[in-house]
Amino acid sequence: MKLSFFLSALLAAAAPVLFHSAAHACAVCLSGSADDPLTDAFNWSVLFLMAMPYTVLGSIGAFLFYNYRRSTKRASEPSARTTIAPLTWIHKESGR
């Protein structure tokens, strides 16, 4: 079972080498010339789409970091902490 799986995986990995003409996954790759506007258009589009996940994840990370820092700052402010000041009033009131 293990051997057949290993052989199948090896065959699948070797297939692009054996049948290289059929293995060109992208029609644009190796087909367009450098000065072709279509090649240039695809290059810019691919560059844009490649940059997007990093931009999105970076923005989310920055947003979360900013919010974390802000909430930490707010929580560390003296006014944010629970105080026992109202009890002073009760004490005074009860002392009358």
């Binding site: 279509l38 589009s45 691919v46 844009f48 789409l49």
Partner: peptide, 21 residues
């Protein structure tokens, strides 16, 4: 984030058509 990627796909297609024309 998913919405941004959706629009990025559409913009990517637009870039291809726009620059190739």
């Amino acid at each position: 984030a998913a919405e941004v990627m959706f629009f990025a796909g559409l913009i990517g297609a637009f870039i291809v058509f726009r620059l190739a024309s």
